[in-house]
Amino acid sequence: MNNRISIIYDRVRWEEKEIFKALEHKNIQFSKFDAKTLVLHSDDSVQSIQDVYGNSILQRCISHYRGMLIAHYLESKNCSVVNNSSTSRTCGNKFLSTLAFEKAGIATPLTLFSFSDKSAVNSVASLGYPSVLKPIVGSWGRGVVKLNDMDSAKALIEMRYNDDGLLSKIFYIQQHVNRPPRDIRTVVVGNEVLGAEYRYSSNDDWRTNLSLGAKIENCPMTKELEDVVIKASESVGGGILGVDLMESDDGLLVHEINNNVEFKGISKFTNDNIAHKIVDYIDTVSKR
């Protein structure tokens, strides 16, 4: 392999360092670009952009909009970007993710969308209590709140509605799923599910995000889990993804797919070197 690969990032985490090491290990020439320093010219030629970024680009920005728009730009110059802008757009927005899951027939929690505080309060009443209010963009469990009763629902919706955030007047309210105190995180690269972990919520929080203190354990891979994860990955266009699921009374529900997946935790539970798999995948995609 001697294709040139570019990595675009805005913060170097453990995962990016592992990918750099994998590229060095495989003796692949690569360039690193800090998205915060880029200035992209609308009229640059396809050739000039490909001369700078090469024929294959891994987009690893932690900022959803920054990464997605850079992917759009590079694709407009005929560059191959992983994950591509369409996958980024769908995964980075829970509203669009839910629509993709429903369209593909993937079991997902019932979700209501509304566009004002009054209609949001009405939507909670129809879903019942508790329900879960989530921001449509963002991660790590930030702003994900349980609406336990009408009083708390009205207060939290009012607070969200009066927030200055660009998307704070769009409400994404989901049924609260009766599940064990854990969810399942899987990492998929292309058509391969590389591992799964249970994420147990900490004693003082119902959310299962690692950043909120969740504990992780190996989750055995089953054919059912693998099939659901691959189907979910395909529903958003595929790539390098973290598919999150819940175990409900009615089976597995996919509730989110992460486009810029962190895989430090799950690496403990898989024999595969995920960074090496990512590099191999980028190389394969660039040759298509």
């Binding site: 900022s63 959803h64 963002g138 991660s139 997946v261």
Partner: peptide
């Protein structure tokens, strides 16, 4: 100084 966490930051 590192950039502060943005509303759209995440995985």
């Amino acid at each position: 100084p590192a950039e502060s966490v943005g509303e759209d930051w995440g995985e």
